[in-house]
Design a protein around this nucleic acid. Structure first.
Ligand SMILES: [Mn+2]
Ligand SMILES: [Mn+2]
Ligand SMILES: [Mn+2]
Ligand SMILES: [Mn+2]
Lengths: 219, 219
DNA sequence: CAAAAAATTTAGACTTACCTAAAATAATAT
DNA sequence: ATATTATTTTAGGTAAGTCTAAATTTTTTG
């Protein structure tokens, strides 16, 4: 099938299309994948030859239907393995992403479908991201980042945009966990920092943090 | 740490040393790994530079202590994953080897030790092979292949030398499973075939098959 | 022991996935 | 509209791991 490098590019392009709209630029990809723009160009040509993306020189890329489905298969594997690590092996949510980066490339449809059944067909991974089914169907629940909320409104903390261990350990330290109800108390215009409160405490977060917290609306 | 290719060579050299005694030859390795002798030579130089093997031109190789321990770590991972696949995901014993070939290269000590605990520290994999512990200690129970048995003697079928799905499916078809008591009824000198019997049936096997069945002595 | 055969190594080439530096193109600013 | 800057691509190179063909060394055989 596809190489690990190809799979990583597909996954990355999928994520960037979602965050920035179609037509993903070379530099954006290079930034995410921590590689050089010239390497990205090489790979985009290869992906285009395999009909996984549409690529026009200087114009960026977007996934074809085949590319989208292939990306979703990798994402499905990544998120199912993360569930396994947390639910069965007692890992913490901040420890699983890098291991799942490796496990996601193991090739076996049967394996991943049996893993899905073993975990009882989970719908969300440990970071609140939806798990595509075997056909590549995925529910996209529209959540708000704290940055999009007005002062005084509240929501349930249901996901993170950044799954890196540094960020998740920051949240652990600040006692913020999925399921918490968070209210925006105030926004400081000077530095764009956010005063928020949960049932148990109040704290100030930077706009960088605010952007990476996904809430679901609640009355 | 080491690349997948390096890990595969280490594992293979370890297995060949066991089967053929120390000083493993280039061609033997090439045969097992399904690669060309010239590729093996290249890799042996690399492994020697990393002090994983002792290699003298034209003289074959053997593992250093570091090489032996590194090989055992890969074998430990391979066998634990096979246990997981059979015990938790309900795979058959003939389906797991190729998937474990991929999973064995996932890098995380914590992962493999947690997996070990999750499986309750199994001592044997689904093919009867012993699982090294986290320190690389492994029990080497001396078993006989049917080829080493005299007419009239019997033993318990405790392991296979060949874990390929073709061979295991042959055993399924012939109704031979780990734990069966097998008696050697007769050996045909003409073609070196073996007449054997279990509790439920008799059959004839070739010497090729006989060689790959490991029995434990029983009175 | 010398010749033939077998095993092993070397030489040179290929693919994948990277890289740096230079050239080309697009976007922005004056 | 042109000049400057930013982005992207091309050109050429590297390392890992493989290959084929040729050279070398070891082993076997008459
Ligand atoms: Mn992740
Ligand atoms: Mn990955
Ligand atoms: Mn195996
Ligand atoms: Mn392997």
């Amino acid at each position: 099938m596809y190489s690990q490098a190809e799979e990583n590019y597909l996954k990355t392009i999928y994520a960037l299309e979602k965050d920035f709209g179609n037509e993903v630029s070379t530099n954006l990809i290079a930034g995410k994948i921590k590689t050089k723009a010239s390497s990205v160009t090489d790979m985009l040509k290869k992906l285009a030859n395999k009909e996984l993306v549409i690529y026009k020189r200087y114009q960026g890329v977007y996934l074809t239907e085949l590319g989208r489905l292939s990306a979703l298969k990798v994402i499905r594997k990544h998120r199912l393995w993360e569930c396994f690590l947390v639910q069965k092996l007692q890992f913490n949510w901040d420890e699983v992403h890098d291991i799942a980066e490796q496990l996601e490339h193991v090739k076996s449809e049967l394996l991943i479908n049996k893993l899905d059944a073993f975990l009882r067909f989970p719908k969300l991974d440990p970071h609140g991201d939806p798990i595509p089914d075997a056909q590549g169907r995925v529910l996209l629940s529209k959540t708000l980042s704290i940055k999009d909320m007005k002062i005084g409104t509240a929501g349930i903390f249901v996901g993170v945009k950044d799954s890196s261990s540094v960020f998740l350990q920051y949240l652990n330290k600040k006692n913020l966990a999925l399921g918490d109800k968070i209210r925006v108390i105030d926004i400081e215009p000077f530095d764009d920092s956010y005063h928020i409160e949960t049932k148990t405490h109040r704290l100030v977060i930077t706009s960088n943090v605010a952007e990476n917290l996904c809430l679901k609306n609640v009355k």
